[in-house]
């Protein structure tokens, strides 16, 4: 029963969501935005319910539903709010709830990097540009929005296009992923085996090893340590005989020697994708150069216009 009801519920949810989004978009005449948003929320709820029924016991926790409702609701409000500044602020809310979802996926570093870079840097740039690029309001009409902000273009057609895409993706999720995905094992390149500088102090602390003990080799679960000058042994380790100079011993790695999230990201980034890192640097440099060139051009044009106005000559139309 459930396996027949689930795809039906899922598609019903997607269709109801499409109806709600189409109603929520601003347009000429009557645009029932609040009702549309509520209908879209119901559609999202039905779709998530269908996925939850399908998942059975393995469904995600309450925080997932909380963050995804906030995130998608803010995204809908972002595309339907007539005021650009509010749309940008709703996008910040979407970013914050995406960061919550990242935290649920235990990607802590990316969650906070997302908040810092997106909500902190990129969105501030957007807000600046929104405020730069608006007509100064005249005295009598302070609160009037421009026509292109109040009405959207072909809301029905674009909603159909967007939700056709969503329906195709959902069909893939329901039908195409019935077979278990090929799952790569935990990546072997990233482990404590490459973090010898981190492992050494942890070993010294845990086992009370002397200063001159030297780390020879680190494997997945154990580490080999060499004692160049010999060692008197310790009660803690149940070693009661003095060790020969140059003797090696194997120790089990303690739990806190494992690589943390940010260390593993760094190792994957620099060890696995060095070319991508370089290319990203070049792209950022090019973007900076491009932005500087565009900004310079504007200033020169403005100055040219001002000079022309000061000379009282022909006013330029702004066509360079």
């Amino acid at each position: 029963m459930i396996q027949f009801a689930t795809p039906f519920l899922l598609y019903l949810g997607v269709a109801v969501g499409a109806l709600g989004v189409a109603l929520a978009l601003p347009r000429r005449g009557l645009s029932p935005q609040v009702i549309g948003a509520m209908i879209a929320g119901v559609g999202l709820g039905v779709a998530l319910l269908a996925l939850g029924l399908k998942a059975g016991e393995a469904r995600p926790g309450i925080y997932f539903y909380l963050f995804s409702f906030i995130g998608l609701g803010a995204a809908l409000r972002m595309i339907s709010h007539p005021r650009p500044v509010y749309a940008a602020l709703y996008f910040v809310l979407t970013i914050l709830s995406s960061a919550g979802l990242y935290l649920l996926l235990s990607a802590e570093f990316m969650a906070f990097a997302l908040i810092i870079i997106y909500a902190g840097a990129i969105l501030i740039t957007y807000l600046f540009v929104i405020m730069l690029a608006t007509q100064a309001p005249t005295a009598e009409e302070i609160d009037v929005l421009s026509e292109y902000d109040r009405y959207s273009r072909d809301p029905i057609i674009s909603t159909i296009a967007g939700f056709a895409l969503l329906a195709v993706l959902t069909a893939m999720l329901v039908g195409g992923l019935e077979q278990p995905l090929h799952r790569a094992g935990p990546s072997d390149s990233v482990s404590s085996a490459v973090l010898s500088r981190k492992v050494e102090p942890v070993l010294e602390r845990t086992y009370g090893l002397p200063e001159e003990a030297r780390l020879v080799r680190v494997e997945e679960t154990s580490a080999t340590v060499e004692f160049p000058n010999g060692w008197g042994g310790s009660d803690q380790l149940q070693i009661f005989r003095p060790l020969e100079p140059g003797e090696t011993m194997q120790f089990d790695l303690p739990a806190d020697a494992a690589a943390e999230n940010i260390e593993q990201i760094g190792l994957t980034l620099v060890g696995g994708h060095p070319l991508g890192l370089e290319v990203a640097g070049v792209i950022l440099l090019m973007a900076m150069l491009g932005a500087i060139i565009l900004a310079r051009k504007q200033i020169q044009e403005e100055e040219g216009r001002k000079v022309a106005a000061a000379r009282g000559g022909l006013t330029s139309e702004g066509r360079s």
Partner: peptide, 11 residues
């Protein structure tokens, strides 16, 4: 999908 709709429909 919401982003796509917004891109298509906002002016």
């Amino acid at each position: 999908a919401i982003g796509l709709i917004g891109f298509l429909t906002r002016r």
